[in-house]
Computed example of a mutant assay.
Amino acid sequence: MSSPLWPYITPGIPDDLFERLPGIPMSKREVRLLLISYLRLQPDCIVWDIGAGTGTIAVETGLLCPQGRIIAVERDGEVANLIRTNCDRFGVTNVDVIEGNAPDCLHGLKNLPHRVCLEGGKAIKDILVTVWQYLQPQGRIVATASNLETLYLISEGFAQLQVRNVEVVQSSINRLESRGRSQSLVAIDPMFILSGEKIS
């Protein structure tokens, strides 16, 4: 699938091409590239994007999985509409937006995931444990943490669930930005990215 707004086969859509709402978090392009690489997508993947926010992951994975289905879960109705707006903006038609609180809203979803992207949240361990029940064998899960408390909860969950082939990285990214008449390298907030597999 391709989009007139992003007519490339590579991920990494610039942040400023997405519609945004004040105060709504967005996975920055460079972090998004890492997340997507750890998802290890295939064209027909079913992806659950939980805590979808602005919808950047949903849009990018939707473009990369043209025969697949993306389930974007977001609890806030206004933010869910923002995801729909961004999908329309890029012509992505294989994303279903689910409004509700995870993990409760995950029960009864018909499309069981091959891949799960889980971004932050207070109930992240409960969500992780619930998602694991639905993740298909040989499926992959990628979770992010912006602080040590969330990192601990995800790590504890991975150990409890016996997630295999676990990888953990922390992003350290700087962008060149204009500040008045000069240009400076400005740091993007570091992010822990944890990934692993469900063998059976």
Rank of each mutant, 00 (worst) to 15 (best):
P43T: 05
L33T: 07
I83P: 01
V92C: 04
T61D: 04
K198F: 06
E19A: 15
L106R: 01
L194D: 07
E119R: 07
P4K: 13
G100V: 06
S146M: 13
D44T: 08
G121V: 03
A145P: 07
G100F: 06
S172R: 10
G77L: 08
R115I: 00
D104T: 04
G62C: 06
H107F: 14
G157L: 10
L5C: 04
L34T: 14
R75L: 00
E78R: 15
K125T: 12
P66D: 03
N174E: 15
A72R: 05
R20G: 01
N111T: 08
I98W: 02
N94P: 09
G100Q: 07
Q133Y: 10
Y38C: 05
N94T: 10
P113K: 08
E149D: 15
V142P: 06
V142T: 10
P22V: 02
I71T: 01
L82T: 03
Q42W: 10
I24L: 04
V59S: 08
V47K: 08
N165L: 12
S195V: 11
V129Y: 01
P137G: 07
G108R: 08
T93F: 06
L41I: 04
A123Q: 13
S184W: 15
V166Q: 14
Q133K: 15
G100K: 07
P43H: 08
R179N: 09
P113C: 06
S37K: 12
K110A: 12
N165I: 05
M1S: 12
I9E: 14
M26G: 08
V73S: 00
N81I: 00
S37E: 13
L82D: 02
E60V: 09
N174P: 01
I193D: 06
C117H: 14
I46M: 00
E60N: 06
L161V: 11
Y8T: 11
L82Q: 03
N101Y: 04
L135R: 09
T130M: 11
A58V: 09
Y134N: 02
P113L: 09
V129L: 14
P137Q: 07
N111E: 15
G121H: 04
I9C: 08
P25F: 11
G139K: 03
V142R: 07
D49Y: 00
L17C: 05
